[in-house]
Design a protein around this nucleic acid. Structure first.
Lengths: 153, 153
DNA sequence: ATGGATGTTTCACTCAGTGAAGTAATTGGG
DNA sequence: CCCAATTACTTCACTGAGTGAAACATCCAT
């Protein structure tokens, strides 16, 4: 398949890149599926956890995770009930909610991140030198809509 | 956001890579959303088209597109009704179906591929030199489950 | 010949995600 | 100061993408 596809030297590198991204994305998703805490978190919950490296508004998490705000609401609800996040009004704007990890949340996030990061090293097939190269190229593509999250400060 | 995240020098490059893949994947999906023929194809239909560079079994397309075989059946049905693919029994195994592009399908695929490939050059932020580098690193991660598709011959 | 495996199909189901409408709070211009 | 427009989130109905289980037809090795 893949290498069958890639044996065709007419294929543009862009196509190879696209297929590679598809495959990598799927692998990351699979690994995230395999890493969990008990009771299990949904895909969405884990994804929000990954991006919650510091207290953030729900709207920002929606941008980070590339979905609409209404998708974050039930995730925040669930994580709050689970005691993984605390949810407080943003003092600088009372329309907005800040989500922040509880100590339990910190532990959960650490577990997930540690696992996924170490598994990335394994499944990516990249050497220790190649990963930063790849990473730097990948984030060049960060779309403006996500970078707009920078405007929150 | 992203750069806010990445300003944290403690973050492993693997994390940057993962976030980059998420963002790239989302961009590719958005671009695929924006590229279509009339009447529009679904995401699944377009994805199958992308991988249908030559006649293939439906099971192989399921592997290529990283989903289960039952997901390919309605896609094949729709594409066949649309006259985009022809569906014939694989002569070497009468359990299996081969999907092959019709002339109309070839045109549709060319349109989509040309558009997405050229858009990749724009949204990726990578130079012409960087794309092959990135591509070669990305496909290093091709998981064994997909490579197993090589066994079809 | 036969049991186990394979390729696809059907169908019921789940979940991730959207869009539209609503409420509350904020902002900026007159 | 006032108010219209905007923003942040919530609710809820809905859809599409995807799964798993069971079934059927075909293949393959013993």
């Amino acid at each position: 398949m893949a290498q069958d596809l890639f044996a065709n030297t007419d294929l543009p590198p862009e196509f190879k890149a696209i297929i590679g991204v598809f495959a990598l994305y799927n692998q990351i998703e699979c690994e995230l599926d395999n890493v969990n805490i008990s009771p299990p978190l949904t895909k969405m919950e884990k994804r929000v956890l990954v991006f919650l490296d510091k207290p953030k508004r729900m709207g920002v998490l929606a941008e980070d995770t590339l979905c609409v705000p209404s998708a974050v609401t039930p995730v925040a609800d669930a994580l709050e009930v689970r005691g993984i996040v605390s949810r407080t009004r943003d003092p600088s704007d009372r329309r907005a909610w800040l989500l922040e990890l509880t100590p339990e949340g910190v532990a959960a996030r650490n577990h997930i991140m540690t696992e996924v990061v170490s598994r990335f090293r394994k499944f990516s097939g990249m050497s220790a030198d190649e990963i930063p190269t790849f990473a730097n190229l990948a984030i060049k593509a960060m779309p403006g809509a996500v970078e707009a999250g920078l405007m929150e400060d």
